[in-house]
Computed example of a mutant assay.
Amino acid sequence: MKLRIEDNSLRLRLSEDEVHHFATTGRVASVVPLGLTTTENLTYALERAETEEFRVTYGAGAITVKVPAALATHWTTTDQNGFSATLMMAEDQPLKILIEKDLDCRH
């Protein structure tokens, strides 16, 4: 899974295998080591949530994007390439979230 952070936006791109894993388990995550110990990592994840709203959580070296279950199911079972949302964060700062299938990537 690829993570792109730019200005006030997060973009996650999932390979075909990751989309299938997400559809099956409701969660897909990647870990980037950022230090010399195993606790110095950045984990980023996409989770299916039983809510009707997008959420982003951050803490303890982890960014988690939570998407409504109905939208997640539709996305993983159709040819829909992506979906997005804009969340209002602290001090009315917008955060744009974009989730996409990266089906042509074969590395």
Results as ranks from 00 to 15, higher is better:
1 M>C: 06
1 M>K: 02
1 M>Q: 04
3 L>I: 10
3 L>W: 03
3 L>H: 07
3 L>K: 09
4 R>W: 10
6 E>H: 11
6 E>L: 08
6 E>G: 11
6 E>R: 14
7 D>C: 03
7 D>W: 12
8 N>T: 06
8 N>R: 15
8 N>M: 02
11 R>E: 01
12 L>M: 12
14 L>G: 04
14 L>T: 00
17 D>L: 09
18 E>V: 01
21 H>W: 04
22 F>C: 01
23 A>H: 15
23 A>W: 07
24 T>A: 13
24 T>I: 05
30 S>Y: 02
30 S>E: 15
31 V>I: 13
32 V>I: 15
33 P>H: 13
35 G>V: 03
35 G>E: 09
39 T>W: 14
39 T>F: 14
40 E>K: 11
41 N>D: 09
41 N>F: 02
44 Y>S: 02
49 A>C: 04
51 T>E: 11
52 E>T: 13
56 V>L: 15
57 T>Y: 03
59 G>V: 05
60 A>K: 15
61 G>L: 04
65 V>K: 05
65 V>Y: 04
66 K>W: 12
67 V>D: 01
69 A>L: 07
70 A>G: 03
71 L>W: 12
71 L>K: 11
72 A>E: 00
73 T>W: 10
73 T>M: 06
73 T>F: 11
74 H>D: 12
75 W>I: 01
78 T>I: 06
80 Q>N: 05
81 N>I: 06
86 T>H: 06
89 M>A: 15
90 A>T: 13
90 A>V: 06
92 D>L: 13
93 Q>D: 01
94 P>Q: 08
95 L>Q: 11
95 L>V: 08
96 K>G: 00
98 L>R: 14
99 I>S: 06
100 E>K: 10
100 E>P: 07
100 E>W: 00
100 E>A: 13
101 K>Y: 01
102 D>E: 11
105 C>R: 15
106 R>H: 14
107 H>K: 11
